[in-house]
């Protein structure tokens, strides 16, 4: 559905008096199969938005090729536009217009007749739980309703491929969970391919078959969430002791459990990543018990996508979210 090779975008920026070429996207290769839901992750400034804008024909690539829904974005952008739906982060409707009319007009810009566009819009309003909001001004809708309206705008022409740009940013937890259901439905009900960018790792984890991580304008990792998590060496073991005097013996005991790196001490917490933790945990606990160390807590955590991100890019996604 999407084949990208060596996609590059350079901007000319002024640094003092000289002009410098800055590569926002520096040779991205990626592919998305039909029917996949793919998450596109990256810190701010990594080239995420620039790549998305090139794939949706809003920005012309400097070099490389991108075939989207069977058409080249540079050679035949109109054919690409006909085949894709784009749900932008910044919205798609005037706050002063009426919700239903916005969707109908948008459909008509795709060449759909007014009656067909209206029928399709009514159907989408029902599916996206927007019933009764046909005449509402988008400016008077809640954040979650407006985002669902944006999705209706992006789906009015029945695209095979849908791009979602940070679909749940700024929504409260309930609205997010609700929207996840609707995004999953895009494929389950309509068989669409979905390409979404997000800042939230739990979102990518919950929704996506595959995750692409972009950093410094290049794809840094591309795999299923589980495979990516397996790349992170070991589970995180965190011991919490009750007294400061117990910190050093606890550190020594954890160090004896063959962790990937020397244990880190933070106040009364001692932590390290340990491979094959299930086999080592009983020995660790026994050793602590023999030394009379009373644990206030013990926690074993499977690697999260945040750990993946830290490993792949050296940065936490949350820091600049």
């Amino acid at each position: 559905m999407i084949q990208v090779e060596g996609l590059t975008k350079t901007f000319t920026a002024r640094r003092g008096k000289e002009k410098v070429e800055v590569a926002a996207v520096a040779g991205v290769d990626l592919h998305v199969d039909e029917g996949e839901i793919v998450g596109f992750l990256g810190p701010n400034g990594a080239g995420k938005t620039t790549t998305l804008r090139m794939l949706t024909t809003l920005l012309r690539p400097t070099a490389g090729t991108a075939r989207v829904a069977g058409h080249d974005v540079a050679a035949d952008p109109v054919a690409v536009r006909r085949a894709i739906g784009y749900v932008s982060q910044s919205g798609s409707t005037s706050p002063e217009a009426r919700a239903g009319e916005e969707v109908v007009d948008h459909g008509m810009l795709y060449g759909i007749s007014r009656a067909a566009a209206a029928a399709r819009a009514r159907e989408l309003f029902a599916q996206l739980e927007l019933d009764g909001l046909w005449d509402r001004k988008p400016g008077a809708m809640s954040g979650g309703q407006r985002r669902r309206l944006d999705i209706a705008m992006g789906l009015v022409h029945d695209p095979r491929l849908v791009f979602l740009d940070e679909p749940t940013t700024g929504l409260d937890p309930q609205a997010r969970a609700n929207l996840w259901g609707h995004i999953a439905d895009l494929r389950r009900v309509r068989g669409s391919t979905v390409f979404l960018t997000t800042h939230y790792l739990d979102e990518a984890d919950a929704l996506c078959d595959r995750i692409l991580v972009i950093d410094h304008g290049r794809i840094a990792a591309a795999d299923t969430p589980d495979a990516l998590k397996r790349q992170v060496a070991g589970d995180l073991v965190q011991l919490t002791v009750g007294a400061a005097a117990d910190v050093e013996p606890a550190r020594a005991a954890l160090a004896a459990a063959e962790p990937e790196e020397p244990p880190a001490v933070d106040g009364l917490h001692v932590s390290a990543r340990v491979r094959g933790v299930a086999g080592r945990l009983p020995t660790l606990v026994r050793r602590l018990d023999e030394q009379g160390i009373v644990l206030a807590g013990i926690e074993v955590r499977r690697p999260t996508l945040d750990d993946v991100f830290l490993t792949v890019t050296g940065r936490s996604l949350r820091e600049d979210a």
Partner: peptide, 12 residues
């Protein structure tokens, strides 16, 4: 409001 960009990704 995103209107112009939304219109620019249509074939219009």
């Amino acid at each position: 409001a995103g209107v112009i960009e939304a219109e620019r990704v249509t074939p219009a």
